[in-house]
Amino acid sequence: MNRRTFLTTALVGTGALALGVNLYHPPQVRVSASLDQSHRLLFSLLVPVFLDGALPNTQSLRVAAQNRTLDAIVATMDLLPDESREELEQLLELLESRLGLLLLTGNMTPLLMRQPQELVAMLEAWRSSFLDLMVTAYQGLRELVLASYYSCPEHWTRLNYEKPRLFN
């Protein structure tokens, strides 16, 4: 086994570990770490950052809104054409691996171990990057999270928006 293969196996093969799931697992997130095919844990870290200021302040409502958003994200991803979904999966897998984190964020600290302001710094770095790849990573995640959140009628109260009731 050459050194490159060894590194890849050691660092990429343990996605859950890289994400930090063995170190900390937020109790309110409905997820089985070993069966997290839909990246719920990763999104449970990103959702509060993207939706800071939009999520309800009351803890129980906030948790419900986050879980609803995670469900909507999974549903949205399922609707994407194969090529877009594969691109997104690649990005999410990179974010769940230590080597991927090093490539995308410049350090290997699992996302779960990072403070919200560090996650903001990560997103801001991508957003203003001179590499189109990083900008599209930011925009892809941003659009997925925001569109999924605002697709739920339960989240429209703050907007004073509701669809008309035509037939009653």
Partner: peptide
């Protein structure tokens, strides 16, 4: 409409929430 504007505007977090409000 919410999804259209949320996705075709800029940023996230507090600044985006203020726009949506």
């Amino acid at each position: 409409h919410p999804v259209l504007i949320a996705s075709k505007s800029l940023g996230y977090g507090q600044s985006h929430a203020e726009l949506m409000a």
